[in-house]
């Protein structure tokens, strides 16, 4: 029984990393004041780019980097439209999702059912020997450890460092930040590209680690769940980790219930759960006035900035 619980835990963590990387990127982007609804397209494009480069070069690290570059390029596109052209950010993000998915499917056609590379689990010495937790958290792939590290680094960066202060200033009150000499446009560009890179890496995680291979629509809404988890996380990377884990647990339960022969909850209900629970979680956050007050939503989120006003 314990070994089965360990296994379900391991699957849960494994299933959560893509969403986690997407959420972490989106937190930074949104903290700088830019709303990016293109995460789904960026993840899908990153998944394709990662798998394709892995399939061609045979190098998994190059593959993961390609996913990052692909997502970053789409991030740059979003930045040009939403920051420089001051376009409607909701629409620009949706365009990124449509365009990114289309381009991923278009370019990825030759790679369907192709042979590719995978990133194998890499148990960390000592840590992976901890009972249960070692197997669950520390017998994962290198991208999972990257995601853990990024969670901590981004938490400290955003709350304790000068860089974080500047990013938050650009997102909270762009005009005031600009008056104080903060290069708002540069910061927003950098944050948007960074967010795109992490979304792309999250996508590459899916095609290299979680469900190796390239399939059309393979992200299945994980990009959108990542955006929803940013709300759940109240823009805090540590909470984003918990949110992603919650998503992973729900995904893992589908396997667990099948394994244990639990039929009380039909399979299709379990398949709906990640989406429905994400909606419920968003509702709960908004229900609680105290949570809403300290929610940390950036004041200028989604508002383009120009000196002319």
């Amino acid at each position: 029984m314990l070994s089965e619980v360990t296994m379900v835990g391991q699957i849960a963590v494994k299933a959560s990393i893509g969403v986690l990387l997407g959420s972490l990127g989106e937190i930074v982007t949104e903290k700088s004041g830019v709303l990016n609804l293109g995460v789904e397209g960026m993840m899908l494009f990153g998944a394709m780019a990662g798998f394709a480069v892995g399939s061609i070069t045979g190098n998994a690290y190059l593959a993961a980097s390609a996913g990052m570059v692909g997502g970053g390029l789409l991030g740059l596109l979003h930045a040009v439209f939403s920051i420089s052209l001051q376009a409607n950010q909701v629409l620009s993000g949706l365009a990124i999702t449509i365009f990114g998915s289309g381009l991923a499917h278009f370019l990825g056609r030759p790679f369907i059912n192709a042979r590719g590379v995978t990133l194998a689990p890499l148990p960390i010495p000592l840590l992976s020997d901890i009972p249960v937790l070692g197997k669950v958290f520390f017998s994962q792939s290198i991208l999972a450890y990257t995601a853990y590290a990024l969670t901590l680094i981004l938490y400290f960066m955003l709350t304790k460092s000068r860089t974080g202060l500047v990013i938050r200033a650009a997102g909270e009150d762009a005009a005031a930040a600009d008056a104080a000499g903060t290069p708002v446009t540069t910061i927003r560009y950098a944050s948007t590209v960074f967010g795109g890179m992490l979304a792309g890496l999250g996508g590459a995680y899916l095609s290299l680690v979680h469900t190796p291979g390239w399939k059309e629509h393979m992200t299945g809404g994980q990009g959108w769940i990542a955006i929803a988890m940013v709300l759940f996380s109240v823009w805090n990377p540590l909470w984003a980790f918990c949110g992603a884990l919650l998503f992973g647990v729900l995904t893992a339960l589908q396997f667990a219930f099948q394994m244990w022969g639990v039929t009380a909850v039909p399979q299709y209900i379990l398949k709906m759960m990640p989406y429905l629970l994400t909606i419920m979680v968003m509702a709960v956050i908004h229900l609680s006035p105290s949570l809403r007050r300290k929610s940390g939503a950036p004041g200028d989120l989604g508002r383009p900035f120009s000196r002319e006003g």
């Binding site: 397209g41 629409l91 620009s92 949706l94 365009a95 990124i96 449509i98 365009f99 990114g100 998915s101 289309g102 381009l103 499917h105 278009f106 056609r109 059309e216």
Partner: peptide, 11 residues
């Protein structure tokens, strides 16, 4: 899927 690419470009 060139269809989706063109649709994204339209937006």
């Amino acid at each position: 899927s060139i269809e989706l690419v063109l649709k994204g470009c339209l937006v």
